[in-house]
């Protein structure tokens, strides 16, 4: 499969009054053509920053890309000029934002908001653009699209607005869609519909999708591969089946364990990972998960592990999987 996007050792810092916050600390992963990749991890682990970096949407005044490459069709987006970036944004890579209630312009008609990107990127006539917008609204399941296009965002419900946002992201038939928690702000019944919609569209149009979420149920349902992030780093990546059947990093294991299960007994309390992630203003030298890890070893405190291959598709950043790791300690993880 062809790699559409490859991020190599991306580091992003934010300038704050307290100092440099290392929001993303050497993230590497890739997205193949026609694939849905999940980016999971708890709040503040750098998922959204990574996603916004791909489109270079971070505020330039207080953020900077310290190192790394974001290769899109083997072109490094970090080196691309703003002028050229404008032709990529919305056109080849588009984004679905988290909160449909605030991500639409309140004083513009829905139809206009859908076609403005199309008219800029594809140089089509207004009537043609409107025809396309109508098709898209039908595709995302908005009834009476012609009437709806002349309405304003406040006349739509949350779920309907998110459909509009999705239609907006699809209008130029991008090769990559970044969906930043597209269902977090919606209620559960709508969530399922929206996710099914994304999956169907991805299948129909063969686009690649990066889905940012902290909902593992969503991941299992529609994703092909998973990238787990923790404290600004990738700690594990692999196929969905691998991650769910055989999580290797202690953090991933913890995540899996903390999902409530149907077969749980009534008085069994829900598992949670003790502690909180490190302050990224002064990240630790060793493994970022050291202080919360049940299997922590001496080496973990001093040295940060790199991603190690478990097999050709699954990688993890944990010393336990180092060829020289004590087999006994690996053994102790079996019972999880």
């Amino acid at each position: 499969m062809k790699k559409l996007l490859e991020i190599k050792d991306l580091k992003v810092n934010f300038h704050t009054y307290l100092g440099e916050v290392q929001a993303v600390r050497g993230v590497s992963f890739h997205v193949n053509q026609g694939e849905i990749v999940a980016l999971v991890g708890e709040s503040g682990c750098g998922k959204s920053v990574t996603a916004k970096s791909i489109m270079k949407l971070l505020p330039t005044a207080f953020s900077h890309y310290k190192s790394g490459e974001i290769l899109y069709h083997s072109m490094d987006l970090l080196k691309v000029q703003e002028k050229e970036m404008e032709t990529i944004r919305g056109n080849e890579i588009s984004m679905i934002f988290q909160d449909p209630m605030t991500s639409l312009n309140p004083t513009s008609k829905i139809g206009e908001q859908i076609i403005e990107g199309l008219m800029k990127h594809k140089k089509v006539s207004k009537s043609e653009a409107y025809r396309k917008a109508k098709e898209l609204l039908e595709l995302v399941g908005i009834p009476q699209p012609e009437k709806r296009m002349n309405q304003y965002p406040h006349e739509f419900s949350g779920g309907m607005r998110q459909r509009v946002v999705i239609a907006m992201a699809l209008v130029c038939e991008p090769q990559l869609i970044i969906a930043d928690e597209p269902t977090t702000a919606l209620d559960v019944t709508i969530q399922a519909q929206i996710l099914k919609l994304i999956k169907d569209l991805q299948f129909k149009l063969n686009t690649s999708v990066i889905l940012i979420t902290h909902d593992l149920g969503v991941v299992a349902e529609i994703c092909d591969r998973v990238v787990v992030m923790y404290a600004g780093e990738v700690v594990e990546s692999g196929k969905v089946e691998e991650i769910f059947a055989n999580p290797s990093h202690p953090y991933t294991k913890g995540l899996m364990k903390s999902v409530p299960r149907l077969d749980m007994s009534r008085n069994e309390s829900l598992y949670s990972i003790v502690g909180s992630p490190p302050n990224l203003l002064h990240p630790p030298n060793g493994c970022a998960f050291y202080s919360r890890c049940e299997y922590a070893m001496k080496v973990c405190q001093k040295h940060s592990p790199n991603l190690m291959e478990i097999n050709t598709t699954q990688q993890t950043a944990c010393w336990l999987y180092h060829p020289m790791a004590n087999p006994v300690e690996k053994e102790s993880m079996g019972g999880m």
């Binding site: 489109m55 404008e86 919305g90 934002f97 605030t102 991500s103 639409l104 312009n105 907006m168």
Partner: peptide, 17 residues
């Protein structure tokens, strides 16, 4: 500081627009 400003930028619209 509103979200829709980022949406606009993410659509690749020109600064003046």
């Amino acid at each position: 500081s509103q979200d829709y400003m980022i949406t606009a930028k993410a659509k690749g619209l020109k600064g003046k627009f």
